[in-house]
Design a protein around this nucleic acid. Structure first.
Lengths: 379, 379
DNA sequence: ATGAAAGCGCTAACAG
DNA sequence: CTGTTAGCGCTTTCAT
């Protein structure tokens, strides 16, 4: 590919002015059909692709949305190894390991997917940045300079950077707690979801004694979910203080240890409510091995609605978060802000879905739930 | 956010020329420390973020790599529903379904991840486009105008578009078959991987009769894998023609049907080799239910190395493709092409890894495999 | 319907 | 080390 052709070359080739070339591309209807054809022919012949930089500069908008989210430090350590001279095949015995498999990948994956779709359908391209701890500011700034608005996964960027960036373009926060009234914000109904789930356990399964598996203390999601748990018990006149809370850091591995202890001590409650799916799966791992029947002996529930929770044995009752919609909603918020800069801060709470599956309902058919496929929490 | 501040404002504020502001940002060492500080202070105070459009235009490079891959048509139909007034919680009984769960998501997810990391570490941002059937050309063009080079998942874009784009920027193809010598290309050793796996089954497990589960006829990956299968048998003096081949379109669901039939007819071979993991998982589903023991009665193998294959019971022997590395290699190819435009076409084949797990090796420890953790196929 | 011309905000020589 | 000065390729009035 030689130097890329420009409007000038196309214009010359088609025997028109550059303004006309521009019109053909932006507002074809303002140009006579015949000239339009001529120009398009030149475009094809020369292999012309307009420069977004020039366009962005002239039009004062890039037509790109940014999306930034936190990554995994593991990625930091990727080697610089050459790919070239490797053996084509490596044979390896892969022993079962018990580690947590890839972290919340899917979470981001879905947010990304939703964002991508929504951005394009509104005529915006999407630029993504996955943070790797160190150079957050640099990356965010870099992205910020290239886009018309940026969405940032909560907690992934210090407020001060965000404020800096926000002086240039709209910033919308995804998930996490409300951050004052400074930024537009989209999130999911964590507390309400947990509350509805627990109320279901109390109302429809007569569960009275629980164990709660909680995640990291610094996770707002984790906190909101526990709040929902407490609210549910409170609403049913029960004392949440009586429920043992075990920390397992959102980790499948650590949840297994907790579960082992519980089995060992014979301290099994009627239901174990977990702050995320990974931990619940860890519990299922142990119970399966130790012959604890789920849900007959103990009901187990998760939170997130990850794919693995649909494929476990038994399948896991959980609260599904609409990740794809989160991404989409973020894009829309940006759009809305761009169209109407002066509107008050957007704060959107997306609904969650309690998915009742075998880990709470058993194998029966329309088990447990009263005839109410849809119902809002009254919180 | 008011109008974004520009170099001019920063320059005025700091009492220097715009050139100096530019230097402070691009080549800080060319500026005296004291002035640098002064400029940076103004930058912070004014909330200045440089415009990538202007920079891209002036510098004739955007500092962005593009990545385009095919998406799922399902995404096309996303509604325009408002998110606003929904109920915060929906309670639903989620009956087990047998559908294929999200398609090769993970595949793209990992390629994306690798690309993203490699791009940033070389100072490039990454712009992603996920095709939705219809407007491929438009999207690819749009991306092409914004980036310095673009990587495209094979088969996702017609050659003619690619050639058009290639006149402006370097294009590298990811996966799929070699496409003449027109484009740079990175892919994985599909055939070699399958061959090594099958040779292992023959050599170390004395498997003589196989059933092969194949995917879509129009998938180059599928074809290459089958080629590898045939080669392996050929290399061992066996006739691949004798092996029954069943089509299951890379689908877990359809693989189940095939497996049911096989069980029903009592037509079980010593080993079922599948063209991808999904199909192998489908086979495991059925065998688990029908009491066919794996690997004692039948060995089952997959291909791809998806996460679910690590969590099945028994865990699935498969050939892992280095998706993350694919993305990384693609970015490097672009970089290399940018640095050295005249070099001959790049064609990189990344190694795959045969992961021997319980679905072929059983529960034993260093089962089956002779003491050779690493070994290349002799193909 | 089309052309002429003025920037958009920044980088990159080139002077000094 | 710092300032001056051309553009980079395109959009967008304003004329015609």
């Amino acid at each position: 590919m030689r130097r890329a052709p420009t409007v000038y070359e196309v214009a010359a080739h088609a025997g028109v002015s550059i303004a006309t070339v521009s019109r053909v591309l932006r507002r074809p209807d303002d140009v006579r059909a015949s000239t339009r054809e001529r120009v398009m022919a030149s475009v094809r012949e020369l292999g012309y692709v307009p420069s977004a930089s020039a366009r962005g500069l002239a039009a004062r908008r890039t037509g790109v949305f940014g999306l930034y989210f936190p990554g995994f430090d593991a990625m930091d350590e990727l080697s610089d190894a050459e790919f070239e001279q490797a053996t084509p095949v490596r044979l390896a015995i892969d022993m079962p390991d018990s580690g947590d498999v890839r972290p919340p990948n899917l979470y981001f994956d879905e947010v990304l997917r939703g964002s991508e779709v929504e951005a394009w359908r509104h005529g915006f391209a999407l630029m993504v940045g996955v943070g790797r701890g160190s150079n957050t500011e640099e990356m965010v700034n870099d992205i910020a300079g290239r886009v018309d608005a940026i969405a940032v996964l909560a907690q992934s960027v210090p407020d001060e950077f965000l404020e800096h960036v926000a002086r240039r373009i709209p910033v919308v926060l995804i998930a996490g707690p409300r951050r004052g009234d400074d930024f537009d914000h989209v999130s999911v109904s964590n507390a309400e979801g947990m509350r509805a789930l627990v109320e279901h356990l109390v109302d429809d399964h007569d569960v009275r004694d629980f164990v709660y598996l909680t995640g990291p203390d610094d996770s707002p999601d984790n906190a909101e979910r526990y709040d929902g748990f407490v609210e549910a018990l409170g609403a049913r006149g029960m004392d949440a203080g009586a429920t043992p809370v075990h920390h397992a850091g959102f980790s499948r591995l650590r949840a297994r240890e907790v579960a082992e202890d519980l089995v060992e001590l014979g301290a099994l409650p009627r239901a174990i409510v977990c702050g995320n799916d990974q931990m619940a799966l860890g519990v299922l791992d142990v119970f399966g091995r130790r012959g604890v029947r789920v849900p007959e002996d103990v009901i187990v529930t998760g939170f997130d609605g990850i794919e693995a929770a649909r494929q476990s044995t038994p399948r896991l009752t959980t609260v599904h978060q609409p990740m794809v919609d989160l991404g989409r909603a973020a894009m829309r918020a940006m759009l809305s802000r761009l169209e109407n800069p002066e509107q008050p801060p957007i704060s959107l709470r997306l609904p969650v879905e309690v998915l009742l599956r075998e880990s709470s309902e058993g194998e029966g058919s329309s088990i447990g739930v009263r005839d109410a496929p849809i119902r809002g929490s009254d919180g």
